[in-house]
């Protein structure tokens, strides 16, 4: 029996663990979505928030780069409409309104449970790097600072993080820090079955998690 936390719940936990997360708030109505987007500032992203919808973008539940209140209203209606038609039985808690992630290189940090070694942590570059090239590094939790650094250096795409063709290098220490904090989080929470920060934007000055998903081994409700 597992419990899939919503993006909103997952980000709350990750944020509490000391990891920088893009500002994400929950809107239960269209009006709330507009108010929140004005407060956090355009452009914003909006995503369906439902414990029953895991693949949000495949279900028409994600709208990015919304620049004004009209766009937000339209996006709200479209997201809700798609959810109602494709997942009629899903429990819909609303939509999350999020600040658009800063420009950076997409990376992935994840945790899974190996039957032999327990929690293992993974790091890689996002997109085709992980999907097609499987360019990822693993370590058994808990990891040391040295392990985290070696994981980052181990992937073939590492030169992209160091800055190539005149681009600024990303803040590797900030990525390292997230790896360490996620390792710590997994160690303190043995009930974590799976955790995905995908993507984490590695920028010149910082690293920010733009999406999060946590799956727990749980029988009952978990207090957040």
């Amino acid at each position: 029996m597992t419990l899939v936390l919503t993006e909103f719940e997952s980000k709350k936990l990750i944020g509490k663990a000391g990891i920088e997360v893009v500002e994400t708030r929950l809107a239960r109505t269209c009006g709330e979505a507009v108010t929140i987007s004005k407060e956090i500032g355009f452009p914003v992203a909006m995503k369906i928030n439902s414990p029953d919808i895991i693949h949000k973008s495949d279900s028409g539940g994600v709208k990015l780069g919304l620049n004004d209140p009209d766009g937000v209203e339209r996006a709200y209606r479209e997201i809700m409409g798609a959810a109602a038609s494709r997942h009629p039985r899903a429990e819909i808690q609303g939509v999350t309104v999020q600040k658009m992630a800063p420009p950076g290189i997409e990376t992935i940090i994840g945790v899974s449970r190996d039957p032999l070694f327990g929690h293992v942590i993974m790091f890689g570059l996002g997109g085709v790097f992980v999907e097609v090239l499987k360019d990822v590094a693993f370590r058994v939790v808990p990891v040391t600072g040295k392990d985290a650094r070696e994981m980052i250096e181990e992937i073939k795409g590492y030169p992209l993080l160091q800055g190539y063709r005149g681009r600024d290098p990303v803040n590797i220490a900030a990525v390292e820090n997230i790896i360490l904090k996620i390792s710590d989080f997994a160690e303190k929470n043995p009930e974590v079955v799976e955790l995905d920060l995908n993507p984490v934007f590695a920028c010149a000055d910082r690293a920010v998690a733009a999406d999060a998903r946590i799956i727990l081994a749980a029988k009952n409700h978990v207090n957040l």
Partner: peptide
């Protein structure tokens, strides 16, 4: 016995 995921075993060896 249980199959060992070689990627994980390799990581453990490095550590």
């Amino acid at each position: 016995s249980m199959a060992v995921d070689d990627r994980i075993f390799d990581a453990a060896c490095r550590q």
